[in-house]
C-alpha cells in the first residue's frame, strides 16, 4: 500500500504538480477581488466560500491523470494480477491524491487569506474544515476519475459528475466558517461517507471497465 501511495505522490508532484494547486488557488483568490470590487466587508463575507470553491476546483484539476493513465498503461491490470483488489487500488490512489493536493491547498488558503479579507479566527476554521473536508473531495475525485476513465473527453464529463456531488462538502465547509459546530460535524460526516464509499465505487468502476 505504501509503495503505491508513494508512486501516486511522485506522479502528482512531478512536473510542478505540487505548485499547481497552490498557483490555481491563489489565482482564483486573486481574481475574485477584481471581479466583485474592493469591498472589504463583502470580500470578508464571501472569502471563505470562495476558498472552498477554489479547493474543490483544485481537487478536480488532475482528475484526468488519476485513474485513466494507469488503466491504459496496464498498471491496474498488473496490480490486480498481484492480488490487489480494485477498491484497495482506489484507496491508495485516494490517499495519494489527498496528500498531493490537500497540504498545498491548505498552504494556499493561508496565503490567500489577506487577499480575501479572511480574519485569523475564520482562517483557523477554514483550515480545520479543509483538513476534514479534503479527504472527501479526494475520494470523490478518484471515484469520478474511475467512472469516466476510458470516456472521450473524460475531463469535462468528470466536472459535470463531480461538482454536484461535491456540493454538500462546499456547503457544510462554508457553513462551518460561521462558527457553527453543526456544520463542521456535517462536513465531517459527509467526508467520512465519501471516504468510505468512494474507493468502493471507484473499484467497481475499474472492475466493470476491465470487462
Amino acid at each position: 500500500m505504501i509503495a503505491l501511495i508513494v508512486r501516486e505522490l511522485r506522479i502528482a508532484w512531478s512536473g510542478g504538480g505540487l505548485l499547481l494547486p497552490v498557483a490555481f488557488f491563489l489565482l482564483v483568490a486573486t481574481l475574485f477581488p477584481f471581479a466583485i470590487g474592493p469591498d472589504a466587508a463583502l470580500l470578508a463575507r464571501i472569502g471563505g466560500g470562495v476558498a472552498w470553491a477554489a479547493a474543490l476546483l483544485a481537487a478536480l484539476l488532475p482528475i484526468e491523470r488519476l485513474v485513466a493513465p494507469d488503466v491504459d498503461s496496464g498498471v491496474v491490470d498488473q496490480l490486480v494480477v498481484r492480488g490487489w483488489s480494485d477498491s484497495g487500488i482506489a484507496l491508495a490512489k485516494t490517499i495519494g491524491h489527498w496528500l498531493g493536493f490537500a497540504p498545498a491547498v491548505m498552504l494556499a488558503a493561508g496565503l490567500s487569506a489577506a487577499l480575501l479579507g479572511i480574519d485569523a479566527p475564520t482562517l483557523l476554521l477554514l483550515e480545520a474544515g479543509l483538513l476534514i473536508g479534503t479527504p472527501g473531495l479526494a475520494a470523490l475525485s478518484v471515484a469520478t476519475a474511475a467512472l469516466v476513465a476510458g470516456l472521450r473527453g473524460g475531463g469535462a464529463v468528470a466536472g459535470l459528475v463531480m461538482l454536484p456531488l461535491a456540493l454538500p462538502i462546499v456547503i457544510f465547509g462554508a457553513g462551518a466558517l460561521d462558527g457553527g459546530a453543526g456544520a463542521m460535524k456535517l462536513l465531517a460526516a459527509t467526508s467520512l461517507l465519501l471516504c468510505a464509499g468512494g474507493p468502493i465505487v471507484a473499484g467497481a468502476a475499474m472492475r466493470i471497465g476491465r470487462s
Binding site: 506522479i11 498503461s73 496496464g74 491490470d77 494480477v81 470487462s211
Partner: peptide
Amino acid sequence: AGLLPPVDGSVTRGGAVALLSEAAALD
C-alpha cells in the same frame, strides 16, 4: 490471469502469476 471472469467453467491457479500483456505497465 484472473482479470476477466469466465462465462462458464472454472480456472484454478496454483501460484503467483506474471503477466505480459500489450501494455508495458512501466512508468
